[in-house]
Design a protein around this nucleic acid. Structure first.
Lengths: 216, 216
DNA sequence: ATTTCCAAAAATTTCGAGATTTTGGTATAT
DNA sequence: ATATACCAAAATCTCGAAATTTTTGGAAAT
């Protein structure tokens, strides 16, 4: 694998998991030392990250981590509802038993982790695993939609969403709600009720919407 | 303006207008001469274009113009219907008279050009103007949706759509249909009928869908 | 005739330095 | 005291060349 790609992936991961502070400056020269490469290589990676919205770029003024704003989070949530709803409905129609099996499996895994967090609290390190399982579940929902374009778009929006949604909320007060939400989505999807599925996806994310901007 | 940005924009324009053949290789060294800059600068621009889907990148194997495929075109069309439908409905709700005025103006302009093409055929050079007017109309549709995220996503998908849709079809046989389509969309939007507007947007683009994959 | 292998040629990736621009602090003038 | 001008330090942008990898084309072997 090319070095560039590695650095791109590594930076992306850090940006998604809020390793950098919002609004922080990302100096190519500074990162160069850590990665043991030249500044140009880091620069290229940052440039690419800027085109996917994970980094802001201003000419002659370098790169910054995007600021947090409730408006942006609401817009990203709106897109998630739209794209996940569409992708899931398509998956219901063309996914078949294979998709249902994979979805059930993904939910089982996620559910297991969420219950542990719910009972034990957060035993330091379940956070990362939960993130992965959450993303896996939501990606599986749309995995049989048959559109690579839709999946790519969703993945990009999901990443930006994660970046915006700070998880200083480490006590996971929301987790018990989430357990119900995910189960509702699974049930609706397996029942084949398209409108209900869209509704449940919406409900799951609704707390991040500012209230007015969502259609339907 | 930075040189990089210029080159990025110029290459983007060429890619959208099918200046390069589908599947063609894009050698940084070759383009470097034309732009009178170093290969690294071209490389950066190409790298960024690859993250927005206008160029394919394979490590150690350089950059290529994406191939044409009916599947990809159908997927992109599907996304356009989804995003334009959503954006337009939101614009209907929050756009007000200002939006209606801008939309009417954009349609008037587009309509004028389309009628000229319809009667005179294509007097060599109306193509470029038509492209711009078309994009302007469709962007105006969603312009009052209140979501920068949605607008960016749409713009990106629209560009990829353009890149896929070869316009060797220079006789513009479709133009008379298009005149009706655009008028229908305008009427539906101004009437405030959300479902009808979505339907008209769908009908306008339906000829690029392969048939099965679209929801609703 | 087809396949395999090797070396030359071409293309890609990485680098570090130099040119250009911004940033931050100090002194001067209003 | 505020504003402007100026200068030094730091950061960004561009470049061309060196290092690495793929591609090409022809010779040898099957």
């Amino acid at each position: 694998m090319t070095q560039e790609i590695d650095i791109y992936q590594e930076l992306k991961q850090r940006l998604i998991t809020n390793h950098f502070a919002h609004g922080a400056k990302l100096r190519a020269e500074a990162l160069r030392t850590e990665f043991g490469c030249s500044a140009s290589t880091v620069r290229e990676a940052l440039f690419r990250l800027s085109t996917v919205g994970l980094v802001n770029f201003q000419e002659q003024r370098g790169f910054r981590v995007p600021d947090r704003s409730v408006e942006t989070l609401a817009e990203l949530t709106h897109m998630r509802v739209l794209l996940e709803g569409e992708g899931t409905v398509l998956s219901i129609r063309r996914g078949g038993v294979g998709w249902e099996a994979r979805l059930t499996a993904a939910h089982h895994q996620l559910s297991h982790i969420e219950k542990r967090i719910h009972t034990q609290g957060d035993p330091e390190g379940l956070v990362g695993i939960w993130f992965e399982a959450e993303k896996e579940f939501h990606q599986t929902l749309i995995s049989a939609c048959g559109s690579g374009v839709l999946k790519q778009l969703h993945s990009r929006i999901y990443d930006q969403f994660r970046q915006q949604l700070m998880v200083a909320d480490r006590r996971f007060d929301f987790i018990s709600e989430n357990i119900k939400h995910h189960a509702s989505i699974l049930d609706a999807a397996l029942s084949g009720n398209e409108a209900l599925t869209r509704q449940k996806i919406h409900d799951h994310l609704a707390r991040h919407l500012t209230g007015e901007s969502l259609a339907d």
